[in-house]
Design a protein around this nucleic acid. Sequence first.
DNA 1: ACCTTGATTCGACGCCTGTCAATACAGCGA
DNA 2: TCGCTGTATTGACAGGCGTCGAATCAAGGT
Lengths: 126, 126
Amino acid sequence: MSKSEAVELPLRRDGDAVPCCPPITAGELSQADAERTAAMFKALSDPVRLRLFSKVASHPGGEACVCDIADVGVSQPTVSHHLKKLREAGLLTSERRGTWVYYRVAPSVVAAMAAMLDLRAPGPRA
Amino acid sequence: MSKSEAVELPLRRDGDAVPCCPPITAGELSQADAERTAAMFKALSDPVRLRLFSKVASHPGGEACVCDIADVGVSQPTVSHHLKKLREAGLLTSERRGTWVYYRVAPSVVAAMAAMLDLRAPGPRA
DNA sequence: ACCTTGATTCGACGCCTGTCAATACAGCGA
DNA sequence: TCGCTGTATTGACAGGCGTCGAATCAAGGT
């Protein structure tokens, strides 16, 4: 490979003066911010990807084998393609364990979206 | 016109057993739910649209004239095209007042996304 | 009436994306 | 070693999307 394999996550850790996802409703976004944020939305803008992401996110243990989530109405290669996109967008991570490959939601992803939507509820915001 | 002009908003009012956007991280999405939710993300998956939306959302008074937000680096027809998409996605509403057209964020949009991301209960997962 | 300015629509172009069948790759078991 | 199952990649196709220039519509001012 040499292609982009997992971009910088659109959010920092937490409690940081993040350069990425300033609240969408609380100020104008810069060009760069808009591109990063849009990329995140884009990854979730396909029904198949959304279902895959949802299945992983809601799977007990926080991770799911491809074989567990592949039933979304499209061919196996297409599933693999979408999972790759989600990986490249920084939303999912994958790990091969023996025969199967397991996916899990990348840390801080949901928190990133929360921050971007200006919902300060989640964090221990002091 | 006769085309689709503003779809059903992806969320209900609030505190409703909504048919649309069940928390993305708390269960698998149905085909229909995934399509609706994906459509909302899709509308925001373009940097230009994101900036336009952001500009409207952050504008004092909650509304903005096209002339105020049109400076996003693309031609004016393209701006209009993107605003139309945001309108059709149910994210923005428009109103002509004299010479200018004013846009504002459709009610409950951000709240819809919040609900969908299952924020509100970050720590206490139980 | 006319012209000027703001905004939308039209038509066309190139790029990007979702999809599949076919193929390749990775582990495991016999 | 061979074959089998699970996953990823390749190559190709149709359709969708973002963009623009030009034309059109809408209000106001002169």
